[in-house]
């Protein structure tokens, strides 16, 4: 029998270290030289797979693959707040817990730091989209598990949560989509992978006069709002604006995928309901006729 904590925690030796730590570290510049640079700026999303209702045991869930980045989200029914909770308001509380699978990234040491900062950003991005006045005195718990991280983890998590919220039947003002763009040594990377993200975040202070960093933007298309603009690094205002515009363009493209998936889900659900109703009607008709005899 597995220990009682097995379902909540990943069972893996805490002291384990991936072999990649012992491999000779390449200089960032060398790494950058090896990197494949985008020849032309293409504002496109990565190949995306989205499945809503992936878990049967929770209220709402979604699984998303964005390139090699894999994210799973689950949402539980609203929970009553404790008496002791001080934050009393007419708006419901949203709590986000984000976990990295231990095998998701190459350097497990950065996981706790990433988890807290991303959970915070995720909460900020999702709060404006949920109709929180419908859950006064309640707490909505959103759980995210990053199974594989090849860059764009935060934006994929936001996309995945948006789909899961709709699956859970929670009232939202709009569909939310997010995307990531990063700039390093004057080259703009759309949907940066893990190597580039690592490069950008490990940049040293001596070269900080150069523009570099990551921008993640979450937006609502129909109401034309930005719910979260997450930026790391140093940009000039013009560059930031340009990069944000690029993320918004990608967001629209991702929205098409999200819409398509959700639309099909609603369609199949309604068809199922219709079929169920027809079955009940025929059963009723049969029983009525036999009773009459």
């Amino acid at each position: 029998m597995p220990p009682p904590s097995a379902s909540r925690k990943f069972m893996y030796p805490e002291q384990s270290v991936p072999y990649s730590v012992y491999i000779k570290q390449e200089h960032p510049d060398e790494l950058f030289a090896k990197l494949e640079k985008p020849g032309k700026l293409q504002l496109e999303e990565r190949p995306t797979f989205l499945k809503v209702g992936a878990l049967a045991t929770v209220k709402g869930s979604a699984y998303m693959e964005y390139g090699k980045t894999k994210v799973m989200t689950s949402i539980e029914p609203p929970r009553e707040l404790n008496k002791q909770t001080k934050k009393i308001g007419t708006l419901g509380l949203v709590t986000c817990t984000l976990k990295y699978a231990p095998f998701a990234v190459k350097d497990p040491a950065c996981i706790p730091r990433k988890e807290t900062s991303m959970a915070l950003a995720l909460k900020k991005a999702l709060e404006p989209v949920i109709c929180r006045h419908e859950f006064p005195y309640f707490q909505l718990e959103i759980k995210v598990l990053i199974i594989d991280d090849d860059g764009c983890a935060l934006s994929t998590a936001i996309n995945c949560c948006g789909a899961a919220l709709v699956d859970a039947g929670i009232a939202t003002y709009d569909l939310i989509t997010a995307s990531t763009v990063c700039k390093y040594k004057d080259v703009e990377f759309v949907n940066p992978n893990a190597v580039i993200e690592q490069l950008v975040s490990t940049i040293t202070n001596s070269e900080s006069d150069e523009e570099h960093g990551i921008v993640v933007t979450a937006s609502l298309a129909a109401v034309d709002q930005i719910t979260e603009c997450f930026q790391k690094g140093y940009f000039k205002p013009e560059t930031l604006q340009q990069l944000t515009d690029h993320t918004l363009a990608i967001n629209e493209r991702i929205l098409d995928t999200v819409r398509y998936v959700l639309f099909n889900k609603v369609k199949t659900l309604l068809e199922k309901e219709k079929e169920a109703r027809e079955v009940i009607e025929t059963i009723n008709a049969i029983t009525e006729s036999t009773v009459a005899e």
């Binding site: 709709v166 003002y173 569909l175 129909a222 098409d256 819409r259 609603v266």
Partner: peptide, 25 residues
């Protein structure tokens, strides 16, 4: 909003009564 109207039309032809919608529509 173009996509929405397209989708609606296609749904309407399949299923005469139901108009489907997504949040924010």
């Amino acid at each position: 909003m173009e996509i929405d109207s397209n989708n609606e039309k296609s749904i309407n032809s399949d299923n005469a009564e139901a108009i489907l919608c997504l949040p924010g529509q």
